[in-house]
């Protein structure tokens, strides 16, 4: 028996919004430690890794490990039927071929449940090596989304250059060149507005704007985003999900032909 309950459906809606543009389907691997999903996008350029810890749920029970393959478009349709403040419970029997998603209004006067067919997805799991990143940038997630949106107008690619002075985003195309530089913030009142850079060595890498923009669909999950970079390895874009876990996107850099 698997059962997981969250106090607010809005969190699950935001998580789905953060992955459904990159992935059409995904396997939710459930164990007593929580729920994990790892999947590459269709073109195998990026990888999404979602971790939701069991202790972040209002109720969590998983007697036997189960893998639930879901069509994310179908799940998004179901989540559309929930009000943001509804409780949401996911339930499945061991070896079941369906999952039940139930919404309850705060006053318990409305209860709805949706049974969704599970899929057998033959998804390949990739081992992600431990990496010492040369640069780790933390910045407001809205600022990152704004930069990705703005620079995508000028080029398909953005060059991210991180030094101890700051982080620079550059896009060059037919129009010309756009540069956006962010310096580390001094003392700020609100931690969520700060930009911090932890640099061992300077790094310059090139990435596809299209994927960076897809990652920013996770912006509503977190006020801050963390970018981890190292020469010749994928960028990690991480959004923490408060008291519940995180979503990490890995993006292969563009390389010299």
């Amino acid at each position: 028996m698997f059962e997981a309950r969250l106090g607010q459906a809005t969190i699950l809606k935001k998580i789905l919004d953060a992955i459904k543009d990159l992935l059409t389907e995904g396997t939710f691997d459930c164990s007593d430690s929580g729920i994990q999903l790892q999947a590459m996008d269709n073109s195998h350029v990026s990888l999404v890794s979602l971790t939701l810890r069991s202790d972040g749920f209002d109720k969590f029970r998983c007697d036997r490990n189960i893998s639930m393959g879901m069509n994310l478009g179908s799940m998004a349709k179901i989540l559309k039927c929930a009000n943001n403040e509804d409780n949401v419970t996911m339930k499945a029997q061991d070896n079941a071929d369906t999952v039940t998603i139930m919404f309850e209004s705060a006053n318990q006067e409305k209860v709805s449940d949706y049974e969704m067919k599970l899929m057998n997805l033959d998804q390949e799991h990739l081992g992600i090596p431990e990496t010492e990143y040369s640069c780790v940038v933390r910045m407001p997630s809205m600022e990152f989304a704004r930069i990705c949106r703005d620079l995508a107008q000028f080029s398909e690619s953005v060059v991210i250059c991180c030094t101890k002075e700051g982080v620079k985003f550059t896009a060059s195309g037919d129009v010309g060149t756009a540069n956006i530089k962010l310096a580390q913030t001094g003392s700020v009142d609100k931690e969520e507005e700060s930009v911090s850079i932890d640099m061992q060595e300077p790094v310059t890498l090139t990435f596809a704007c299209r994927y960076l923009n897809a990652f920013t669909k996770a912006t509503p999950l977190s006020t801050q985003v963390q970018l981890s970079m190292c020469a010749d390895v994928p960028l990690v874009v991480e959004y923490a999900i408060k008291d519940l876990g995180y979503i990490r996107y890995y993006l292969a850099p563009k390389i010299e032909d």
Binding site: H44, G127, I128, V233, P234, A252, K254
Partner: peptide, 14 residues
């Protein structure tokens, strides 16, 4: 000219 690499080239299949 830069080309897009695959994420598979960086991570190993489990």
């Amino acid at each position: 000219k830069k080309i897009q690499g695959s994420i598979r080239n960086y991570f190993t299949a489990k």
